[in-house]
Design a protein around this nucleic acid. Sequence first.
RNA 1: AGGCGCUUAGCUCAGUUGGUAGAGCGUUGCCUCGACACGGCAAAGGUCAGCGGUUCGAGCCCGCUAGCGCCUACCA
Length: 893
Amino acid sequence: MIEIPKTYDPKEAEQNHYARWEERGYFAPEINRDPDAPVFSIVIPPPNVTGSLHMGHALQHTMMDVLTRHKRMSGFRALWLPGMDHAGISTQLMVTRQLKKEGFSRHDLGREKFVERVWAWKQEYGGQILKQIRREGASVDWSRERFTMDESLSRAVREAFVRLYEDGMIYRGNRIVNWCPNDQTVLSDLEVLREPQKGKLYYLRYPFRNREGSITVATTRPETMLGDTAVAVNPGDERYSALIGEALTLPLMNREIPIVADDFVESEFGTGAVKVTPAHDPNDYEMGVRHNLEQIAVIDQFARMTEATGPEFAGLDRYKARDLVIEKFTELGLLEQVVDYEFAISKCERCKTVIEPLTSTQWFCRMDQLRDLALAKLRKDGTPHFEPQIPYEKVYSDWLENLRDWTISRQLWWGHQIPAWYTADGQIIVARSFEEAKQKAGTDELTQDEDVLDTWFSSALWPFSTLGWPDETDDLKTFYPTSVLVTARDIIFLWVSRMMMTGLKFMGREPFADVYVTGTVLDKHGQRMSKTKGNGIDPLEVFEKYGVDATRLTLASVGSTDTRWSERQVESYRNFANKIWNAARFCLMNSDGAESVADPFAGELPLHDRWILSRLNKTAREVNDRLGQYDFHGVVQTLYHFFWDDFCDWYIELSKATVTAETDSPERSTARARLIAVLEQSLRLMHPFMPYLTEELWQKLPVQHAQLLHGAYAGAEPTIMLASFPQCDSALVDERAESEMQAVIDLVSRVRNIRSQINIKPGERIQLMIAANADLQAVFRASSDQIARLTRAANVSIDGNAAMPRASARAVLTGGAEVAVPLEGLIDFAQERERLLREKEKLQKEREKLDAQLGNQDFVQRAPAEKVAGLRARLGEIDQQVAALEQMVEALS
RNA sequence: AGGCGCUUAGCUCAGUUGGUAGAGCGUUGCCUCGACACGGCAAAGGUCAGCGGUUCGAGCCCGCUAGCGCCUACCA
């Protein structure tokens, strides 16, 4: 007899197993010795080196771990590759702040020292999240851990850059960009937030150059007027058509600017005339290009007015300049009106500073060819397959179709420095290394570009750079393309699409076949969890309180829909874990003799054994199928109900008498071995979701652990991680057993219902009289001991006719069976009559519905014959039961 | 402004090709029957947001309305 505590303590299991799994190399694909093993691989979405675990990570990691463990147990050569992202801006900000506390800036240190400092920071404080990933139980292969700034990955970055440059897809140019005046760097469109902003719309008059009068333009940013080089109107706007080409005098600057016609202008908005500031507005920039307008930079990189604005404005902050412009327009009588106006403003994703659009010389990546590769792949092969396909496939393709060039340079020090050098005479040399650049340039008087690349440039290469690219390593050949990408929806553009494009470009193959997009865990009010709102739930605290396994089940069942966080949910899965623990506890307490049984399910089996095997195998089938479809929610439900309802509530109870028999016997040993065998397979089925609990229990079971390992891991030190994942043996799926067992379950439930309704004390023994047809008689007779035990009946009689005592509580069952509980002296006849009449009423209501349906000729003719037959059968059944009930009532009168 | 999604039991969510609505928690009653009170047994609870349509039949398909949410966007 093996004794374990009454309550599952997750902490103990969590402390015991992870380190051992890791040390023994279970996480590495090399543990798989089958040379022909199919391959399964996932690369982790690399968390920021500055980050710490939040619910979104825990959610994604749970799902990736479930998939990886499932495939590993199924004999796949499984790799889940971990790593981190250097997170350019975040990390640089982190260290800059630290420096500031010490009283100096990064410029005091200089670039080289600063970068050293960031590395030191990374060593000391970075990667806290890696420890937390261990805590989650994530079966990642730490021997393959990567960091986007590793030398090998940096090499991949340079290689990719050079190739794209050589193919004409990367270029350097002066264009309008998103500039963050606080972080002092350019940002891509995807790193800019659009926020609604209450502001004002100013109506400004621009006088005609050569005559009286003026034209009025509306703007939210009057200060940019200093850089205006035109006013635009819609070519179809009759109010202005005569004015097109006419000259205006730009107030304050006294500059002559033309009126141009452009389709961009919406006649309905404002006055229908737009001031054009090509240097400080993306749309105006485009218009400027179309009309060949001068770009006059009036705002600098610190968001202050430039020298070009003249002595009164130069050096003023952009908002101060706004006030001054308005003041001057008022003085000149050129301010027509000011109205309240709400519009969208661009802010820096990181520091929330208002973005200043300005023209700047930067590196860009042309996206047209890359986009076409991705779109063609999707249209031709349906790759990647998004799950859920709706709406994500369309979200992805729509975005690709409207893709614009990607600004890839950043004015930071932390990151991959752009592999471009300039000669003294301004020639650009793009090369993989300084050596190569010198060769190409024919001189060593070269200066490397100061800028670094967007963090997402290196992330875009992650699925192959981590596997060794550009070298053709074994890992690359084996694990690329990866099997599936699991991610939140907010980085479909930033990351997923870019990996797809670079993968197709450099590898000639997609980086992953499937993209599983997870739902989001919201707070209990349905709001997104965020640091600034402070409404986040720390997964580590939940681990502490309820255990990792319970948390994982909760997260897995979120699936792909947004779900509000509810601690009660975790609590119920904690209870489930405890239920498993106690079911195992029961099995272990009654395990003596079980190990001597070689083949527990050999030979002829009683109903409940055939039934549980059928249920178990159907469960295995469902779990495998649903995991294949990424239906995490469904799998959790399936496992929960199989284990709790089928195994605990019925199978254990049905086996109890035999299993707990006082004296040893072959029957007892066999029953015990069967119980343990079913439990053992259940643990394997649940292991991907609940790694700690299942390992803890599996190790304790009196079974031949080594024999349970999947063939690919033969010889390994036994662990449930490497045990074979149960597959459905369809020979064991037994519909007849299931329906017969269902009859027993119905019978027991009805009797319990009677006991409860009549208030029979739980301790009180009853008599049970069952009348049934020959088939059911045989079923009930074979299970009569169990029926007696579960209904707490002193004795059970079964026969074909219903000669039942008048003083009894009775019920009719499906299949025409009847049951009576004789209760001489206890029965209140009137009450019992009412009870039966209520039953009858229920059936009659159903009958009415069926009558209506079957009375409808259209239904009978058009519905499938099978359906109609089914309803007719049900109708017959009801009639029979109603008749039986009427007889019972009659007998009571 | 467009696009998309959601609205099912008090709460959080499932609902597979249209065929008599499900789970967990909560609620009610009974229960120390030695695996488990983080438990057992039994039960109550729903005009599937509203309106209209298609169909023999709609939570599921189509249209409109309302509320909520998300994403995209070049109305200054």
